[in-house]
Design a protein around this nucleic acid. Sequence first.
DNA 1: GCCGAAACTTGACAGTCGTCAAGGAAATCC
DNA 2: GGATTTCCTTGACGACTGTCAAGTTTCGGC
Lengths: 211, 211
Amino acid sequence: MTDVAESKQHRIARRQVDKFDARRTELAVATLHTLAELGYARTSLREIAQNSEFSHGVLHYYFADKRDLITEAVRQYEVVCVTRYDEVVATATSAEQLRDGFVAMFFDTLAQDAALHRLWYDLRNQSLFDETFRADVLEIDSHREAMVWRVVSRCAELRGGTVSASSGLVYVTLDGVFQRALLHHLAGDVATVAALRAELPEVVDLLVRAQ
Amino acid sequence: MTDVAESKQHRIARRQVDKFDARRTELAVATLHTLAELGYARTSLREIAQNSEFSHGVLHYYFADKRDLITEAVRQYEVVCVTRYDEVVATATSAEQLRDGFVAMFFDTLAQDAALHRLWYDLRNQSLFDETFRADVLEIDSHREAMVWRVVSRCAELRGGTVSASSGLVYVTLDGVFQRALLHHLAGDVATVAALRAELPEVVDLLVRAQ
DNA sequence: GCCGAAACTTGACAGTCGTCAAGGAAATCC
DNA sequence: GGATTTCCTTGACGACTGTCAAGTTTCGGC
């Protein structure tokens, strides 16, 4: 076989792989939406297929099994969700601007992507029972932690101060607020959500003390 | 019918109701253990029955349907879990003693009742998808909030200071630490759990400032 | 335009699920 | 101690699950 033929065959193989991966991703996204809608416990392969333009059998053409499919969907979640505040961090020129931009985006995505967020918490929780997901969950969780740390540490930098807690503590605090806000948002409790929104700037101030 | 007969019949009826309730509770506890072991998504009525001394059919004798059963199990969880720190609060004579007693019990129950706790988070999360559970979940959540508030406010009292955050914020912070510790505990990550344990006293100090 | 491989559909499989009716066992009543 | 109610078991139902093999359609290479 000549180099030309080899290279050509390689191109073809490469194109096929790309196409294969593209469809995998497409189906993983459909899975993500189904999971966000129904939750892990009630999501079936046939339901996922109905949220795509294919039949249920195709899922076993692109994925080894249900676990493989859901794992890929979780990775898709990560792509969407761990750079949310980076633009605010990059453009803010004062600590107050960063803090307020963060708070605004925090509650914007809370309302906008509520279904997706509840899915994340559902999967994180599932990893407490099923160790298959644990590695992916821990990885995403660390990325989320890094994401809020970029916000808070930059905020401290702009204020010329320091962060008063560890990265882990900052994360659990803000994530805790988010979880609580999500629960009450989905319960239709507007007042509690508003109260949390009003309180969040103080939380940031508590975490970031001026030197 | 004489008063005596009426009272007698009433006694009988009462006894039957008590017996009925006792068995309901017994089955709800079996349900709780099954849920803690398998998680909501994989818990079936037959599995629950196998964790009791009865057959699966009896569940429909004491409960209207699966939802009714699980709701009752959640209420049983509440009975067990929302007075955990009360003794420490009652007996502590100094802020440090209360804080350290709280931290000790915090990580004690984390290891001891890990399965039960992951169940709680599973059900709280389920309520994000299924509004049937929402009312019960919100009620239990508020009781948990009150529970930690009793700790922190008493701590502030003993220190002659004030709590630096609202009840809700205190709760999400400590609950966030707990959730994180639980995840890493179940993942076998001893180091992270130890780090959280070492940090928790500082967290309490951050929440309770001396006047 | 033919051929073979890739992509997709369909239908069936062995299980499991929640639910419930029929009937046996046990306790209770008179 | 027989009758009656309560308690519990058994087995079955239709629906749904993940998986997969067989078959059909679509597409790219020659």
